[in-house]
Nucleic acid binder design. Structure first.
Length: 562
DNA sequence: ATGCAATACC
């Protein structure tokens, strides 16, 4: 026999809390029932609490609604509601929500609200980091210290992260040193912060220390350290990390695979990257993007102008997607690199979007490479008019170089003055090479390396052999108003040549030499790499800011298109 | 009942 119960409103309200709330509609229905029904206080609170958790934390919830519920909840003794709402605000992408998060935290410093506790601070530091509120965050650091939560590892980990985001890596280090119970997150936060603050070599050292001290590593750790490997071209460390995955010490999550693809591609091993990609069962958009980008920087689909036109057209006609400026930018870059400067300029003029700084730079750079100084000179006017970005000196450097290559030294000096006036500093060129388990970084004319004498000795030898084979320094690449002899001297001490010499000394004959550069190489260095690859029978891989160059037997994979 | 760290490109 079945029994059918008749639901009184009271029973209904009790029942509702067992149901999952899935929409704001449900939530409001429950809210009405809670208000209208005279259930006992405990039940009422249980339902309100459930309602609150849904509105605050569910992706289909509503933060404003959750906030308004705060007054009906027993918040004076229990920090859960404040903490949960701060947490919800702190994970929102909207900056305004982060101010709400902090304002709620400030409420908590008043009576009769509950005091912030060890759960509160991690969320609050997250908001400080997002809003880059360095001084405010530092004040809170003081509060943490006074409040007695300075030994809570989670609180300190979030503080380390905050300091890195706010560009205060020294403070991050200090906090890390003071954590007595460091966990995986403490170490990982440090490694990731170091990569983000452009100290990838330090990040790798810390990873080594972590492994030596037998701290367990997890997926997040290796994703961060793989970024450092990609940045510095540390293939051996990257392979070691891959080894951890193969030994099943690390799970092969999607993010790990993507990081491996990126690492292999950026370290010049495109085939290994392809192997990792092929093994992924469920390839997500990040894996595809990393793979496509890897193939592109390796020049595996360069110069397919007609293909590119087809895709650009297809976007609109087949898929109904409006091309963005980046899509046009790709097309212009493709045409310009291949020397079709007039077609490239026509696209820029006809496209339905206003060209930006990057677009003009692409075009002007190509004019310089292909020696079309008249067009370049004309286009530079657009760049000078458009330049508003305060921190970016790329345009000034480019325009200055174009002037210099045409011998217009006064115009070049004008660019330099403009940069100085705006307080912009051109990043110095540097080259890194991994040898004997360490990363060596060189700058122009660098003599700080412990083996500097050997390096310069090797350079002399290389120069002699190259000159015997007909090498003549391309002094026009030195864009300074100095004598040719001095130009040749400077040219010969470019950072990538120092790295090359070190590679020749410290790697075994016949082994490949891999160099990572932060800017683009000059034409002279490019030529020297080509000749060296033939004369010394070495495969040389140079990664510049944009792409890879594979030098084999006197030729480069970029077909001299850069 | 609540916590900290993360991938590509631009």
């Amino acid at each position: 026999m079945k029994v059918y119960y008749y639901h009184t409103p009271q029973a209904q309200a009790q029942q509702t809390h067992k149901m999952e709330i899935s929409t704001m509609g449900h939530a409001m229905q429950l809210h009405v029932q809670i208000l209208k029904t005279d259930t006992n206080q405990t039940q009422k609170l249980k339902n309100l609490s459930k309602l609150f958790t849904f509105t605050a934390l569910s992706p289909s919830g509503d933060l404003n609604y959750a906030h308004s519920l705060l007054t009906s909840l027993p918040t004076s003794t229990n920090s859960y509601y404040h903490n949960t709402l701060i947490r919800a605000y702190a994970r929102s992408p909207d900056p305004a929500h982060h101010f709400h998060s902090l304002s709620l935290f400030l409420d908590m410093l008043h009576d009769p609200t509950p005091s912030p506790d060890s759960f509160t601070y991690p969320f609050v530091f997250k908001s400080c980091a997002r809003l880059r509120l360095t001084r405010f965050g530092k004040q809170l650091h003081g509060l943490v210290f006074k409040s007695g939560f300075w030994s809570d590892t989670c609180v300190l980990n979030s503080l380390i992260h905050f300091y890195f985001v706010c560009d205060e890596s020294d403070h991050a280090h200090k906090v890390f040193d003071k954590v007595t119970d460091r966990d995986v997150v403490s170490w990982t936060t440090m490694i990731d912060g170091l990569v983000d603050s452009e100290q990838p070599v330090k990040a790798i050292h810390l990873f080594d220390r972590m492994v030596k001290e037998r701290i367990g590593v997890n997926e997040v750790t290796v994703v961060s350290v793989l970024r450092a490997c990609a940045e510095t071209g540390s293939l051996s460390v990257g392979r070691r990390v891959h080894g951890l995955v193969e030994e099943r010490i690390i799970g092969l999550e999607a993010k790990v695979s993507t990081a491996l693809i990126n690492m292999y591609a950026k370290c010049g091993c495109i085939d290994s990257a392809i192997r990792v990609f092929d093994e992924i069962v469920d390839k997500d958009v990040f894996a595809w993007t990393a793979m496509i980008n890897g193939l592109a920087t390796h020049g595996r689909n360069a110069g397919l102008i007609n293909e590119a036109f087809k895709y650009l057209e297809g976007m609109r006609k087949k898929h109904g997607v409006k091309p963005t400026i980046q899509h046009y930018g790709c097309m212009v870059d493709l045409l310009a690199r291949a020397g079709h400067l007039r077609d490239a300029e026509e696209i820029v003029r006809k496209m339905p979007i206003e060209p930006d700084v990057v677009m003009w730079r692409t075009l002007i750079w190509a004019c310089k490479v292909h020696g079309d100084t008249i067009r370049g000179d004309r286009l530079m006017k657009h760049l000078e008019l458009l330049e508003t970005d305060g921190n970016d000196c790329g345009s000034y450097v480019l325009v200055g170089n174009v002037y210099a290559s045409a011998g217009k030294w006064q115009d070049k000096a004008r660019m330099r003055e403009l940069m100085n006036w705006k307080g912009l500093v051109k990043p110095p060129g540097s080259s890194k090479i991994e040898a004997n388990g360490a990363i060596h970084e060189f700058t122009l004319g660098d003599s700080t390396h412990p083996e500097a004498d050997n390096i310069y000795g090797k350079l002399d030898e290389v120069e002699e052999r190259l000159r015997e084979e007909g090498y003549r320094p391309k002094v026009s690449e030195v864009l300074l108003e100095i004598e040719d002899e001095k130009k040749a001297f400077q040219l010969w001490h470019h950072s990538e040549k120092l790295a090359l010499a070190y590679g020749l000394i410290r790697t075994n004959p016949g082994d490949g030499i891999r160099i990572v550069k932060n800017l683009r190489s000059c034409e002279d260095c490019h030529e020297v790499m080509k000749l060296t690859s033939r004369i010394y029978r070495r495969e040389i891989v140079v990664r510049d800011r944009i792409r890879f160059h594979y030098f084999r037997n006197g030729e480069c994979s970029c077909k001299d298109l850069w």
